[in-house]
């Protein structure tokens, strides 16, 4: 058993000159480690401290610390099963819906600890919205899809207000022109890319401060993907965005900072450009150069 690899710095791993394989990485798992790069920022919208997540006895996230700045786009990358989705779901307590999932640590949205069990998830999720991997419009009309959030939160007093919210959200999601004549047809009748933009419109209809996206483009073709990426760019002027992606090009295109997860650990966080040109950590480099993942 090699017990001290991860306690040393990234440089030492290189010095040891051992090939990076799944086995060596598994061995490193049980140990304490330090995230390299800069995981923190001054104007943090959300700050996560000492996050550990368990599914039953199995630990999925190890001691992660990360800040997400205001109006910043943070990309989360890493091999499949490394815990990106799990971590993202912590940010709006979606893990509450999984019985066996246990989340430890501090999560601050501005100054509020959102992991407090007394905290009501309803207002939290109104402030931290989520877009899922597979487009999941409700089996209702396009209008009702977008209007659902404002309705349950009582955001519009009059019908005309609601109409305005729906139009605005669809416009921001770049879908208005395509659907304005068919608002009352089912949202499930749209194409995959349109559906995903509808889901984004639905999320921004409640005017969240933070938007979480879990591989929002993985079910889409390159053109639809390009549209969504453009949209993320625009949205980042007003919203704070955390996006999980498997596409490194996508992370490079849309994000300001990139976080690299590996087997439940946050290995490296850096400016996106740095991560993709000159990563600090050997594992990050191995991943972005395609040596595993």
């Amino acid at each position: 058993m090699n017990t001290n690899v991860m306690t040393e710095t990234a440089g030492d791993i290189v010095a040891e000159n051992k090939p990076v394989t799944a086995d060596t990485i598994a061995e490193q798992n049980a140990d304490a480690y330090e995230t390299v790069g800069n995981a923190f920022c001054d104007q943090a919208k959300m700050s996560m401290r000492n996050v550990n997540v368990f599914y039953d006895e199995k630990q999925a996230i190890y001691d992660v610390n990360l800040d997400i700045g205001t109006n910043e786009v943070v990309a989360m990358i890493g091999p499949s099963g490394c815990g990106k989705s799990t971590f993202l779901r912590c940010l709006n307590r979606m893990n509450d819906t999984i019985d066996i999932c246990r989340v430890e640590g501090q999560f601050y949205l501005e100054d509020q600890d959102i992991n407090d069990k007394k905290m009501d998830v309803v207002p939290l999720r109104a402030r931290v919205g989520m877009v899922f991997q597979k487009p999941n419009p409700f089996p209702k009309s396009i209008y009702d899809n977008v209007a659902y959030g404002p309705r349950i939160h009582g955001l519009a007093d009059r019908r005309s207000d609601l109409d305005e919210i729906v139009e605005n959200s669809l416009q921001k999601a770049g879908l208005w022109a395509e659907v304005k004549d068919r608002l009352h047809q089912p949202g499930t009748g749209l194409s995959g890319g349109q559906q995903q933009r509808l889901c984004i419109a639905r999320t921004i209809a409640v005017s969240p401060e933070v938007i979480l996206m879990d591989e929002p483009c993985s079910a889409l073709d390159p053109i639809a993907t390009a549209k969504i990426e453009e949209l993320i760019d625009e949205l980042s002027q007003n919203y704070t965005i955390a996006i999980v992606t498997h596409s490194m090009q996508q992370a490079a295109r849309v994000s300001h900072r990139t976080a690299y997860f590996h087997l439940g650990k946050l290995i490296e966080v850096n400016e996106t450009e740095k991560v993709f040109t000159n990563p600090d950590h050997e594992l990050t480099e191995a991943y972005i150069t395609g040596r595993f993942g």
Binding site: L124, R125, G129, N136, Y148
Partner: peptide, 14 residues
């Protein structure tokens, strides 16, 4: 489908 449930929860539905 769980995705429908998730979508609603994600929007802050009780």
């Amino acid at each position: 489908p769980p995705s429908i449930r998730q979508a609603a929860y994600g929007l802050g539905a009780s």
